[in-house]
Amino acid sequence: MIKKKISFKLNEQEVEVEVETRELLAHVIREQLGKTGTHIGCDTSHCGVCTVDLNGNSVKSCTILAVQADGGEVMTVEGLATNGELHPLQQAFIQDHGLQCGFCTPGMLIRSYRLLQENPSPTEEEIRVGLSGNLCRCTGYQNIVKAVKTAAEKM
């Protein structure tokens, strides 16, 4: 298999890894770089539990190759808190009971983060449409919408 050395910023830290060209970004982040907050759920880019931020866009890391991140900037759920202080979205998800089993939560948070960058004060409908690429089986979404609203107000 062809291997290639790639480097990118992961949560503001420069990382360098040797990957097979066919390796998925999700696997490299999880297995080589040890950031297991990003999950894999469906393999067809429907569920969004693998969502990470790549160069200012939400991407599904189970459907893009690690080599595509070469030279880029990646942010995962592990990069949300700063100096031990939880991001307002993280606080709001706890406050408004926006998670249960926690499996979709990292993808949900990182997508919400980008949504609020794109639209700092979204309406309920804009939140629902903006997060519709992320599935959750536990919460019924209602409290996630509430949490994103809460965070938007605080940010």
């Binding site: 950031k35 297991t36 999950h39 759920v77 949300l80 993280q90 706890i94 998670l99 926690g102 499996f103």
Partner: peptide, 12 residues
């Protein structure tokens, strides 16, 4: 449970 889950520190 939430602080670990929102920080990607769950252990699945």
């Amino acid at each position: 449970e939430d602080p670990r889950f929102v920080q990607g520190k769950g252990n699945y």
